[in-house]
Design a protein around this nucleic acid. Structure first.
Lengths: 199, 199, 199, 199
DNA sequence: GACTAAACGAGACGGTACGTCATGTCTTGGG
DNA sequence: CCCAAGACATGACGTACCGTCTCGTTTAGTC
């Protein structure tokens, strides 16, 4: 029951145009990379005018952010089993799945865009990093409470150790590591973080 | 029996111009970021003609690579003590020192440039990643031989675990983590990788 | 037996809007020239919607025409004394008065608009030129009948000679000549056109 | 024997491009009028880049001026016979010939452009009006000296009377009057200006 | 000491994209 | 049916760089 400033006069925004623009932007992002994502190109491919893009987005950075997140379930329900280790493994694998393939290229492009515009990096932090990190911190705190952590484990360092192997290859290779490698890293890290039940 | 390919007729390359260009490129890179590094800007700032740049470099990517590596000792002699753990810690801290501050921003910019041009990412791999990774693999193999590793540690995963926390923050924050955080991560990782002497 | 074509259903045209639009258009015309007369600008300044303008006028040309003629008495009663020379002098001075100053600039702008749209030039001819020319032709014919013309004077050429000096400076200087200059020209022309009574 | 500031470094201006641009501009000016003369259109038609146009001309006004004057002999040698009346008739007919047809449309367009930009109207004055007016004033002064003028003729008014009928129709009809009409006007005006030899 | 040849600065060239603005059309809700 | 508001596709604006090109100049080695 939202009561906007009365009603919003004038012709309503075209949902068609909005979608065409986001689709075109995503396609170009994946196909040609952030460097070659131009507003004119998007307008051409989407069959819209440039001004329609500038009316709703601030520039190619904003556009790239929205285009990427249109492909992503922004607030996935994260399961919570009894085991913190299992929960983290599930989340990390899920993120890897989200980012692998074309969306991964878009994501890498997006991070790149972050250097060009603080808006973009803020948006990425706010819409990707923060929710996932918040969840992770909370889960880690609960694990500590439940005595699931080994003694002397600092939560912040533990999180860095668990997540970094997922992201860092983007810097050099543009790709998310394969599931097997990721698992090996996770297992190794988990060994030094989580208390395991004695067999 | 001519020693060189003849002797290179004509006016020799101007060392002055080369240095002015690299300096200008680095300055712009650090001051304004990769996005705003333009060939025209470099030529203007260096007081050279554009063609001199295009003669020796393929584009702004190539130029950025050279400008960055001009600030870095490309093949540092890595010490080797008896302890693998100490050696890795030394190397990682050294890399962090190299990348922290302005050069770090240049490095991030460089990695970004990698998406735009395969030449750049190849150069980064060849001049940064490969030598460091080669050393690390070798050192890790020697550690395994010497029985310094805990049982069940896969070298590849171990390396990923050790190095990722250094790089991944570049993706989101444009910075290298502070020494303290890095140490905490390293210690945590080391605990699951290296066999420690019993007290 | 309905008196009007039906009665015109629906909301009646807003006289307020019409006037606001014409006023705004005239103001912009005088203040910023025809070049900078934009429909959007008029709508903004008049506080109306663009479509209201497009509904009633064909474009900025039409609008300029109406705005200009709103400042002019379109069919002034022309006096007729016994002397053709005096009557012409009176009319020409009257026209000069109408066109001098801001309205003159608007008029020049209007003529300029004529090149862009045949509608405009037709309107200018119909609402400015034709009534004045018709009067002049009639007066000249009557003068011929009354024997006021010198022998060998072709009416068409005589009219051109009398009126041209009023208009032609608009082309180069954007202004109507001062009264004194105009008088000198008129006197000179009159000498070769009108028979003067012997003293 | 001009000694420029040494030599003019850099690639020399392309004469080809200059000509293609002027030709295209003139063609558009004549074909579509000043209103529809756009820099982009000229660049498209001339096969050049926009920047080449902006490098050498300040805008469409400047361009139109140059395009028009490229078709006109800017400083025609004016004959001088013994008779001032004949000389003026020759000059006026020559101007009419210059302006009739396509160049006339371009000229009208140009005058229109004068309202939009003071640069243009200054250029038109400087390159068209002034030389012709200067010549006319001088010739008129010489005629006065030689006693060719009727008594009481003010040179300024006489010039206005002679030249106005040529220009003023441009305002309403876009065309230069036909030779016959022009002659009639000229004869009528001449009768009140020049002393004629007794038969 | 002239000749050859490449690198140099300068800067013009045809392009592409930028972000802004006005066009004329349309689609709402409300009077 | 009119009106205001304002979104829409279109297209020109003037700017900034792109990467290529064409100059005249400079700086070596080679004859």
């Amino acid at each position: 029951m939202e009561n906007n400033p009365r009603k919003a006069a004038g012709r309503p925004r075209s949902e068609e145009a909005r979608e065409a623009i986001l689709l075109a932007a995503l396609a170009i992002l994946v196909r040609e990379g952030y460097e070659n994502l131009s507003i004119e190109g998007v307008a051409r491919e989407a069959g819209t005018g440039k001004s329609t893009i500038y009316r709703w987005w601030g520039g190619r950075g904003d556009l790239a952010v929205d285009a990427f997140f249109a492909t992503i379930d922004e607030t996935p329900d994260l399961p919570e089993t009894g085991s913190a280790e299992e929960d983290f493994r599930t989340q990390i694998n899920g993120m890897a799945r989200d980012l692998r393939g074309p969306p991964g290229r878009a994501f890498a492009a997006l991070l790149m865009g972050g250097r060009e515009s603080p808006t973009v990096s803020a948006a990425v932090r706010k819409r990707w990093l923060d929710p996932r990190r918040d969840w992770a911190r909370m889960r880690m705190a609960r694990a500590a409470e439940a005595g699931e952590l080994l003694p002397g484990v600092e939560p912040r360092a533990a999180l860095a150790l668990l997540y970094s192997p997922l992201y860092s290859p983007l810097l050099f290779g543009n790709t998310i590591p394969p599931a097997q490698d990721l698992s090996a890293c996770f297992d190794l890290a988990a060994r030094t973080i989580f208390r395991r039940e004695k067999a």
